[in-house]
Design a protein around this nucleic acid. Structure first.
Lengths: 147, 147
DNA sequence: CACCAATAGTTTGTGCCCCAACTATAGCCG
DNA sequence: CGGCTATAGTTGGGGCACAAACTATTGGTG
């Protein structure tokens, strides 16, 4: 069985958009990793913090919609963020089924340090900002098409 | 604490390329899921099979380079693919440290069914093929920049 | 009021992902 | 030859992702 690489091969690894998407996502998250690590955050946790800095208080349901993540994924993740003291999880008095996730002062304060992250990532990637904007628009179209 | 959404907010969720990248990757993998499930494959397993259909035999090291995945991730994944009978893992006689991963007849045969996958995904996404090609090119640039 | 369906979170199981520590083989070099 | 270092793969730990089963509250509707 010799190497069957072929420019017209529809199963060629190099041509798979989904492969490129997966690798790109993991690669870019890897760029964030050393920047987030000193703040004690993983990338998914950072996304939750972004959502909270923008919209707190939020229910698990609402975070799940904003980040398009399963509540079953968020539940333990939020507990870890509570354990390190960045947020609080309390039942909503108006609806005891729902959780009101709010920021602690410590979580609130973290926002200032986080402001250094996006420019550091852009700088580290070294890509023209307008390329990134185009990419963002293309990804948004893909996300809309995939649902 | 009111909603602080702001079009000039550099920490706004909507503006994060990395967020879009993560969501897009998960969304597109979700499109593959029902197509791969009847073949008994997850998306990462499918990528390994693509690599093997194209280049078998391969060492773990080589698969790791092709897919940009950690050997520690691949090791159990390959064992699962061996368990379902799609591949074999044997030590390379020429270098006993190395593993020669080869396809079984069953794994080889799976390729034909897999040929239906890419067109089905493209059809399901409903995006112009040239948009996908542009996206692929943009992602390739991002991957190169991130390393 | 009592039941019943819907909704919000949690838990469990399987698999992926990275990292760090470990084992084993290989290759080099005195 | 004997030991050193490099390389290939495995293992274990922490965390993410999704699906399915489960608990608890809520809001009808008879």
């Amino acid at each position: 069985m010799s190497d069957t690489a072929d420019t017209a091969n529809p199963l060629a690894l190099e041509e798979q958009v989904c492969f490129a998407l997966s690798v790109a996502a993991r690669s870019v998250v890897a760029v964030y990793r050393p920047l987030l690590e000193p703040m004690g955050l993983t990338h998914p946790q950072y996304l939750v913090m972004l959502a909270l800095w923008q919209h707190a208080p939020l229910s698990v349901r609402r975070i799940s919609e904003l980040l398009q993540l399963d509540p079953g994924t968020l539940s333990p993740l939020l507990k870890r963020l509570e354990a390190v003291g960045y947020l609080r999880r309390e039942r909503d008095p108006g609806d005891e089924r729902s959780l009101a996730v709010t920021l602690t002062p410590s979580g609130q304060a973290l926002r200032e340090r986080a402001e250094a992250i996006p420019p550091a990532v852009v700088e580290r990637l070294g890509l023209p900002v307008e390329d990134l904007r185009d990419l963002h628009a293309a990804l948004t179209r893909v996300i809309a098409s995939a649902r």
